Computed example of a mutant assay.
Amino acid sequence: MSTKAPLAPRQLKPELEREFARSTALGYESADEAGFVRCLSHGYPTPLARWHYHDEYELHLITATSGKVFVGDWIGPFQPGQLVLTGPRLPHNWVTMDLPEGGVANRDLVIQFFHEPLARASETIPELSEVLPLLERAKHGIEFFGLSDAAEAHWHKVKQSHGLRRFTAFCDFLGDLAACTDYRLLSSVQLQSDDDDASLDQIDAVLNRITDQLAEPHSAAGLAAELGMSESRFSRFFRRATGNTFTDFVNRVRISRACQLLMDTDQQVTHICYEVGFNNVANFNRRFLEIKGMTPTDFRRQSLTRFRGSS
């Protein structure tokens, strides 16, 4: 009779980072140093490198090594100079694949900040409203290009400043990010509408229907009829609001949900295929490959790497 201890359950969900875990021994600033803007730097390996999320935005600059970055359902490469902004509660991790013996003393330069102070301040300080579209995009994760040298200089200026001067240096950094047009979103779907409130309410209702009832069939013709539009008018309206055709958008939402299930559950790929609304596995595999650049099985296998470096 076997006496082996039972295997511990495999970790699937990201870890919530709590305030009490933010020790100065790990690179965090002390409470009297950090206010609204918190700076952090650390090497690798470290207990901080794990699949996790938190309530703050995180601006993350890599200064050494290369490997794989995991942001939400995004899996991609990173190397020195990568600059990413993640939104609140968006899981993430950077896993080094070319670690030299003994590790590296400095790999990550990080700034964390909360949403509410900026949002509230922008109501009375119009200049701050320039950053709101950037924060909206950050819900999906943003990778910036061509800013690595400037970002490192900005980080050190913020780190070396205190009080009002730190906030000023931070706003200068945000200004560069808000003005940057060379970036990509690390998410499949992004709402881009700048229509009037009534149109936004209409598109919001459509998007909620799709996301809440993924397994149900959805047609542009049916939704157009519900909104009292012709199908061609609805298609133009939908594309202007989301940046995607109706069919592409539905496929991307379904694939995004499939990614979440592949990462967070042990459900079989076939079961996930039907749960997110595809009616056959071949079509699911084809669409997944088009959107994510790998098969569902490869995505699940690679996603397990996000736990490397965890404490």
Rank of each mutant, 00 (worst) to 15 (best):
P126G: 05
P126C: 06
L128C: 07
L128R: 03
S129H: 07
S129A: 11
S129E: 12
E130S: 12
E130Q: 15
V131N: 15
L132C: 11
L132A: 15
L132R: 03
P133G: 07
P133F: 07
L135Y: 05
L135D: 01
L135G: 01
L135A: 03
L135E: 04
E136R: 08
R137I: 11
R137P: 12
R137A: 08
K139W: 14
K139I: 15
K139T: 13
G141R: 00
G141F: 01
G141N: 01
G141S: 01
I142Q: 00
F144L: 02
F145T: 13
F145W: 11
F145Y: 13
L147R: 03
L147C: 06
S148E: 13
S148Y: 03
S148Q: 08
D149E: 11
D149G: 07
D149A: 10
A150I: 15
A150E: 15
A150R: 10
A151M: 06
A151W: 05
E152K: 06
E152D: 06
A153L: 10
A153R: 14
A153H: 10
A153P: 05
H154R: 06
H156V: 10
K157C: 11
K157E: 11
K159E: 09
Q160F: 08
Q160S: 14
S161G: 12
S161K: 03
S161W: 01
S161Y: 04
S161E: 07
H162Y: 10
G163L: 04
G163W: 04
R165K: 14
R166K: 10
F167P: 02
F167M: 15
T168A: 13
T168F: 12
T168R: 12
A169H: 03
A169W: 03
F170G: 02
C171Q: 09
D172L: 09
F173Q: 04
G175Y: 08
G175A: 09
G175D: 15
G175C: 07
G175P: 04
D176Y: 04
D176A: 08
D176P: 01
L177K: 00
A178P: 00
A178F: 02
A179R: 06
A179F: 10
C180V: 08
C180T: 09
T181P: 03
T181W: 05
T181Y: 06
D182K: 05
D182A: 10
Y183D: 02
Y183S: 00
R184T: 14
R184G: 10
R184A: 09
R184E: 13
R184P: 02
L185C: 06
L186F: 06
L186T: 03
S187C: 10
S187V: 07
S188T: 12
V189N: 03
V189C: 05
Q190T: 14
L191R: 06
L191A: 04
Q192H: 13
Q192D: 09
S193N: 07
S193T: 15
D194F: 15
D194S: 14
D194C: 12
D195R: 15
D196I: 07
D196F: 06
D196R: 02
D196N: 08
D196P: 02
D197G: 06
A198Y: 15
S199R: 05
D201F: 12
D201C: 11
Q202V: 12
Q202G: 05
Q202P: 02
I203D: 10
D204A: 13
